[in-house]
Every structure is written in C-alpha cells, then in structure tokens.
Design a binder for these strands. Structure first.
Lengths: 210, 210
DNA sequence: TAGATTGTTAATCGATTAACAATC
DNA sequence: TAGATTGTTAATCGATTAACAATC
C-alpha cells in the first residue's frame, strides 16, 4: 500500500471553511477562482490555500486557477459529504430539539434517525417529524439500524454514562454538547462542542478591546 | 504605561478549558495541584501549563504547585467571569430558545435581558422567564439598557443586515450562530460558532479511521 | 536543610509564508 | 508565445516542549 502523508488537524479543521466559501461561489455563479482571489475573500494567504489543497492532490491548473465546482466536489468528497451518516440525538431538551430541527445536517450528509429521551411526556411524540423514543429502546434500535453518530445533549451528570453505553453498542462517533470533556479509550471519535467556551473568549476579547 | 506582552489567541482559547478543569478540582475538594498532575488530567504537557499561566503572572509557588481556588479565581478574572455582560438573543427559533434556556450563561457572567423576534405569535410571550420582544423595539430597548453582546440566531439571509443593525446601535460583541462568516469593520468583536463544521470534521475523522 | 516544583530561557517542532520553477 | 498561476521547495515565524536555575 502507498505511504499516505499525514494530514494535520489544522488543515482538516479548515476544510469546512473552504467548503462554505466554495458553496457561496457556486451560488454566485463564479466558475473559476485563483488562490489569490479566494485568499482575499477568506482573509488567509494564497500560499496557505495552495499548500492546504495540495495535501489532497493537485486540484488546480497552472495559469488558470481552480474550477470552483470541481474543487467544491473534491472537498465535499474529502469531508465525506457525499456519504450518508446515520445519527441519533440523545436528549430531547432544548438543544436536542434545536438540532433535530436544523435542516442543514441532512444536506451535509447527516441523517437523524431518532431522538431518545427518558421523559415519558416526550416519548411517543415527534420533533420535526422525527420520533422521540425511550432510552430503554436504544439497544434494540441500534440492532435494527446501523448508527454512526450519537449527538449527546443530556444533562452533565449523565454524559459519561451515556457515552459509554452508546459506544459499547458500536456507535463510533460522538458529538458531545456538554461542557464535560469526553475521552474514550474504545476507539470512538469524539468532537466536543463547548458552546460557552466561545462565549467566554468573546467576553475576554470585549474587555481587552478597552 | 507599562508595555503589555501580547498574549496569543492560542493561549486565550485554552483559558476556558483551564477554567473548567479547575472548577472540577474545586468540586472534588482538591486544594492544590502541580502542573504535572494537571497535565495528566488535561492531556497536555506540564510545560505548556506553566508557560500559559505565566503569560498572566506567577500564580504558583516553587516546591508547592498551584492553589486551586486562587488559580481558579485568577483565571476567572482574566476571562471576565467576575464581570457581568448584558446580552440579547436575536431570533426566538429553536437555537435562540435553547440559548435562552441554558442556565450556565448566568453563572459565567452573561445575563440575557431579552429575546427579539419578528413573529407576532411569539412576541409578548416568554422563554425561561425572558420576554420575547418585537424586533421593532430593539433600538428603544438598547437606549434604556446597555447591551454588550448580541447572540444571533436568525436565518442566514438576515444575518448581515441584523449584524449591521446591531453594531450600529452600539452593541460591541456578536456571537454568530449562522454558517455565514461575519467580518465587521466597525470595531465589533465577532465569535462565529459554525456548528456543522465540527460535525463535518467528525465525519472526516470517522471515515479516515477506517 | 533537602526535596519539590515553579518561572523562565533555550531548543525543537510544526505551521505559515515566501519564492520560484514548472506548466497550462 | 507571453502571461498567469499553480505545485512545491525553502525560509520564516510562532507555538510547544525541554531543561534547569531560582526558590519555596
């Protein structure tokens, strides 16, 4: 097998940004773009753009630049937007409900199959057309449906327990909305959100602005 | 005036993490901690911890380590958690409602004064005890209440317009939940959230895990 | 005092930027 | 062909890690 060059997380985390900007360019009906033009729009250097894109292959053409649609499709492929991921939301509170209602996920390849909760008042009803099921039925559900990602919006004190339960039944990806930092040893991939961290940084920047 | 050493954003963005870990230590009734112990808990190097903390002053003591409560208080001060910020939420949709219901903000110094929306069915009602007011009354409201931060959870197509409106009436901080990247020239500070970026990175990591 | 651990300087590492030959 | 712009190598910059003298 060919030796894959290791791509740094710094590059990976910029990909969704390229994705968004290219999407905008398509909407604006712009067919091609040079690294310099794109750099002006995005506020990063042209050098970085060329360096980043070349981690994955030569997507451009000398003297021409990049074909917007082609580049968009390539980045989509890298990000896996052309693949479908099956997701469940654990916790039908405010955040869980907001996520269930967020239409963008489906467009990006993330299908929400069900929402799970422990509250009998919620179980049996729907959010945005998606069933709210009992936590008791989680194991059965995953037996019949391959689930890739669990979005955790449960109260802090249950996060560790739910994360372990979810990974033990084979779910490999966790999107964690609690301020608790999950570290799992069983090979699962975790992305922590930490909403209020951003808010605190905003607070710091506001105060240091003077 | 004394020359302030410039503190890098990389350091600033780690502060909320220290804040969270120290809060946990206080809950666990741990009185002191060395950089080595903390490094094991947080999964970063002891060297980095000492380097980070020394950007702001000598918070530790040779041979002893750091007093947890003192360190927590110092970091809180740096982050401005001891100061109050007045916030408004623009958009009473699912995300706006979720934010209005999130109790942690108040604990961190962020008070939500009001929620604004254009929907007549929502105007006049409350979320989590907070009034939902008409967007028409935004200017009047800010005349009578000093507002530091606007949390924007409006549909994409309105974001730019609302951001300009909000900054023109003197609000200096914007917490933007739309995928659109705001860049403002009028000296306002923006933190963009870009929820689905994190989800896409999760997708990438899942696929490249094999 | 001896041991521990910080604060801080120096070394290393990785990421960003600059430069330019290749080539469309 | 001449001009433009990439792909890629080399230089720079900044952030992380290592080391150790200072000191509690």
């Amino acid at each position: 097998m060919p030796e894959e060059k290791k791509i740094s997380m710094a590059v990976i985390r910029r990909l969704p940004r390229y994705f968004r900007y290219l999407q905008d360019l398509i909407k604006l009906d712009i067919k091609r773009i040079s690294s310099r033009e794109l750099s002006e729009r995005m506020g990063i250097t042209a050098s970085q753009i060329r360096q980043d894109l070349n981690c994955f292959g030569g997507f451009g053409q000398q003297g021409y630049g990049y074909n917007v649609e082609f580049l968009f499709n390539e980045i989509s492929k890298i990000l896996g937007v052309d693949k479908r991921f099956s997701c469940v939301i654990i916790g039908a509170g405010n955040m869980g409900t907001a996520l269930a209602n967020y239409e963008n996920f489906k467009k990006r390849g993330f299908d929400i199959l069900a929402v799970f909760d422990v509250n009998p008042d919620k179980i049996g009803s729907k959010v945005n057309g998606i069933d709210i099921l009992s936590m008791d039925s989680l194991e059965d559900f995953t037996k019949n449906n391959k689930v890739d990602i669990a979005m955790l919006t449960v109260p802090n004190r249950y996060v560790t327990e739910v994360a372990e339960r979810v990974t033990s039944i084979g779910i490999k990806g966790i999107w964690n909305f609690s301020p608790l930092e999950l570290r799992l040893e069983n090979g699962a991939v975790v992305e922590n959100v930490h909403l209020s961290d951003g808010l605190m940084v905003l607070g710091y920047r506001l105060r240091s602005m003077g």
